[in-house]
C-alpha cells in the first residue's frame, strides 16, 4: 500500500485542525441543540518492546500515563438513525522516555443505523475521525484520519459481538511517521453480571508502520547486510529518521507489513458512571521482508461518564 506523502509541516496542520475543531464545536452544539455529555479516562499502560524493535538488544519497555477527555453530542436523526459527534483531547506522557509525550485531539462523527428496537437489534455504524497530533518528537506531528464500519449484535443480556473494518492514515512532518493501514477486527463481549464485562478480540492490520532500532544495529547490522541482501536493499530505500527517541543514536523507520493482535479486557463497573478496565494486548508484526517483532501491553484505566 502506498502511504500518504509527507507534508512539510505537521504542526501547522495540527494548529489548523485545532482552529477547525474549535469553530465546529460551536456549530455542532447548535446543530445538536443539546448540552454535550462529558466523559474522561485515565490510563496507565505498560508496554514491553514499546520500541517495536526486532533485536532483543533494542527492546525498550516503559510505562505511560494517559488522560483523555471527550465531549459528546448525541442526536437521533430519524427513528432508526443516530448521530454522535465527539471531541476528544488526549495527553500521554512517559516518565522514562519524554520523546514519547504527545497530545492528540480531534472530532469523530459516528452515524449508527439500528435495525429494529431494543438492545438486541443489530446495528451498523460508520465513523469518521480526524486527529491532530502534537508530539515531543516533532517528526511525528501531523494529522490522522480514520474511517470505520462496524456491525454489532447483542444476542442475550450476557453476550454481544461485533466485527469492523477500518482505514486509517497519518500524515506526519517526517515521512518515517506517515503511515496508513487497513484493519479488520472481531470482538466478543461477555457480561456475566451487570457489573462485570469481559471483552476479547482479534485484529489484523495491513499497511505501513513506524518501528525503531538503535542506530548501530540499524546501520552496521541491517543496512550492512547482517539480515541478508533483501533486507539491506529494502531498508536502504524506506523512509527513516534519526529520532534519538529511546537513547542517543536511535533510528525510526517505516515498514510495510502486517500486525496481528489479540487482546482481552476485564472491566468491572464501580458505579453506574464509573468503570475500571484491565487490559492485556499482544501484538505480533511482520514486515514484507520478514523482519518481525512482538509486543505485550498491559494497561489499567478508569473511565468515568459525567
Amino acid at each position: 500500500m502506498k502511504p500518504p506523502r509527507a507534508l512539510p509541516s505537521g504542526s501547522l496542520l495540527a494548529a489548523a485542525l485545532l482552529a477547525l475543531v474549535a469553530s465546529s464545536a460551536g456549530a455542532a452544539a447548535e446543530a445538536f441543540a443539546a448540552a454535550p455529555d462529558y466523559s474522561a479516562r485515565a490510563t496507565y499502560r505498560w508496554t514491553e518492546n514499546i520500541s517495536r524493535a526486532s533485536g532483543p538488544g533494542d527492546f525498550r519497555d516503559t510505562g505511560e500515563y494517559e488522560l483523555s477527555a471527550t465531549a459528546s453530542f448525541k442526536r437521533q436523526l430519524t427513528p432508526r438513525v443516530f448521530a454522535n459527534l465527539d471531541f476528544t483531547l488526549t495527553g500521554t506522557t512517559s516518565p522514562e522516555y519524554e520523546l514519547l509525550d504527545r497530545i492528540e485531539f480531534g472530532p469523530r462523527l459516528t452515524l449508527k443505523r439500528k435495525f429494529g428496537l431494543g438492545p438486541y437489534a443489530p446495528t451498523l455504524s460508520a465513523a469518521a475521525t480526524l486527529t491532530g497530533r502534537y508530539a515531543a518528537l516533532h517528526a511525528q506531528d501531523g494529522i490522522g484520519a480514520r474511517g470505520s464500519l462496524t456491525f454489532a449484535k447483542r444476542f442475550d443480556s450476557w453476550i454481544a459481538a461485533s466485527v469492523s473494518g477500518e482505514w486509517a492514515g497519518h500524515v506526519a512532518e517526517r515521512s518515517a511517521f506517515s503511515v496508513a493501514h487497513w484493519a479488520a477486527d472481531a470482538s466478543l463481549i461477555l457480561d456475566p453480571h451487570p457489573r462485570l464485562r469481559f471483552t476479547t478480540g482479534v485484529s489484523r492490520l495491513e499497511g505501513t508502520l513506524t518501528v525503531s532500532a538503535s542506530r548501530n544495529r540499524f546501520v552496521n547490522g541491517a543496512l550492512a547486510g547482517a539480515l541478508g541482501p533483501k533486507v539491506a536493499s529494502y531498508f536502504a530505500r524506506i523512509p527513516k529518521a534519526d529520532t534519538n527517541i529511546f537513547s542517543p543514536a536511535w533510528v525510526s523507520y517505516r515498514l510495510e507489513g502486517y500486525v496481528d493482535s489479540w487482546w482481552f479486557d476485564l472491566s468491572p463497573a464501580l458505579t453506574e458512571h464509573t468503570s475500571l478496565s484491565l487490559r492485556y494486548e499482544r501484538n505480533h508484526a511482520e514486515s514484507i521482508v520478514q523482519t518481525e517483532y512482538s509486543q505485550d501491553i498491559l494497561s489499567v484505566s478508569i473511565n468515568h461518564a459525567f
Binding site: 451487570p194 457489573r195 464485562r197 479486557d265 472491566s267 468503570s275 487490559r279 494486548e281 473511565n303
Partner: peptide
C-alpha cells in the same frame, strides 16, 4: 439489566 457503566476504551 444491561450495563450502564462506561465501556472500556480502545487499545494502544
Amino acid at each position: 439489566r444491561l450495563r450502564r457503566a462506561p465501556a472500556p476504551g480502545a487499545g494502544s
